Simulated scan of single mutants.
Amino acid sequence: MRRGLLAEFETPEAMLLAIAELRSRGYRRLDAFTPYPIHGIDEALGLRRSPLNWIILPFALAGTAGGYLVQWFCNAFDYPLIVGGRPAHAALAFIPITFEMMVLSASLTGFVVLLVLARLPELWHPVFDVPGFERASIDRFWVGIDARDPALISPLTERDLTDLGAITVAWAGKNGKERS
Rank of each mutant, 00 (worst) to 15 (best):
T34K: 03
T11A: 03
G40I: 14
A90I: 03
P12M: 01
R119C: 02
G84V: 09
L120Y: 08
I55K: 03
L30R: 10
P12N: 04
W54V: 11
V130Y: 11
F111M: 12
P37K: 01
N75H: 14
P96T: 06
Y27G: 01
D31N: 15
A62R: 00
E100Y: 07
R29C: 12
F73T: 13
L61M: 15
R28L: 12
I56S: 02
L45D: 07
A65L: 15
E21S: 14
L57E: 00
Y68I: 13
L16Y: 04
I82N: 12
G40H: 13
G84K: 10
G132H: 09
L6T: 03
N75K: 09
L6V: 08
F9S: 05
D78V: 04
I41P: 04
F133M: 11
D31H: 12
R29T: 07
R140G: 06
D42I: 00
L45S: 08
P35M: 11
L30N: 10
A90T: 11
L117E: 06
T109D: 01
E122P: 00
G67I: 08
F128K: 04
A118N: 14
M102W: 02
A91D: 10
V70D: 03
W124N: 14
E8P: 02
D129P: 05
A136H: 01
G85R: 04
A7N: 05
M102P: 02
A18T: 02
I41H: 05
M102T: 15
R135Q: 15
F133R: 00
I95M: 15
A62Y: 00
P12Q: 07
A60T: 15
G63Y: 06
T64V: 07
G46D: 11
